[in-house]
Design a protein around this nucleic acid. Structure first.
Lengths: 175, 175
DNA sequence: ACCTGAACACCGTTCAAGT
DNA sequence: ACCTGAACACCGTTCAAGT
């Protein structure tokens, strides 16, 4: 049911993800979907949280800063694999499904182990999430502002994410 | 013509920005709009670039790091004034109108004056833009992950933007 | 140049009805 | 529980025609 939606969005992009197209793919009348899902919003939310299931969580004994780097890099990789969907994280609330909650908790543990004061953990988590989703959303996108000539290569974009992530982590852990 | 679109989006939000509603507001048939605009895409692009016209550019003799901080803060403020629209920056290419180009050039001058090597300027500019747009997109949004209780206050979000911006600038200017 | 009427190919969602 | 037929209130866009 939800898997078909996943297939559909990878096939025809996020603009083609439509209740009617989904019903067509399932060989069913459009309104039949409303037996399984309350509406399109819920469907997209489920789809987004489903994506996060693929994020690799670091082993619990790794160095916290390395662990956070790995965690955010894995999130970046998962999100950029479906670039169409990333913008939706911003368009809606920003994912609050079970997978999002689970990853948030992993981040909190790592941040605390990295020496961040308990009071500062939520803000630090937020900075890292916004940073990674922002970079993922722009990963596939063409350049920015002036130099419209050559789009940024995927490798460069990923490197840029890692480098700036390092700067943020340096700031977070020394404040 | 374009101003009516601006009014419409602030009145009814980005979902209500529709060719037909716009025509209705102008007291005109829907298709009449196509005399003035090639399509909805062009209209939204124009709208987004128009937003950037409100960004305050720092005086040319200010300290470059302070100037960049002021420039990105002003961009953040302008974008968060119309939160509905920000997600569209990510959904589409990321703004390449004349205002975006102009601001990009201002950033480049500041970055170079801050000691960034010419080869590193485009990547640094990109990091700052992605960071600010990402934060602006999440500014109005509810919390993230776990602590779903209280959404982040607008002031806290803005402070968080400034603080993490500082970390990025520290990294950019010392690498 | 600027507008209209009519139409095309779509949307998400609901309601009543069937099994 | 799960599906269908039919409908409602919309979309963006195009085409031919008017002034």
């Amino acid at each position: 049911v939800l898997a078909a939606a996943h297939d559909l969005v990878t096939d025809v992009g996020v603009d083609g993800l439509t209740m009617r197209a989904l019903a067509r793919r399932l060989g069913v009348a459009p309104n039949a979907l409303y037996t399984h899902v309350t509406g399109k919003t819920e469907l997209v939310d489920a789809l987004l949280d489903d994506l996060l299931a693929g994020v690799q969580v670091p082993a619990p004994d790794t160095d916290p800063v390395l662990g956070l780097t790995a965690l955010m890099s894995s999130t970046y990789d998962v999100l950029t694999a479906h670039p169409d969907l990333v913008a939706l994280y911003l368009a809606r609330q920003g994912a609050r499904g079970p997978n999002a909650v689970r990853l948030g908790e992993v981040m909190d543990v790592l941040l605390r182990r990295a020496g961040v004061a308990t009071d500062d953990v939520p803000a630090a988590r937020r900075v890292l999430i916004v940073h990674t989703i922002g970079f993922a959303a722009f990963a596939a996108a063409p350049p920015l502002a002036p130099d419209a000539e050559r789009p940024i290569a995927g490798d460069d974009a990923r490197r840029s994410h890692t480098v700036s992530l390092g700067w943020l982590l340096a700031g977070i852990t020394t404040t």
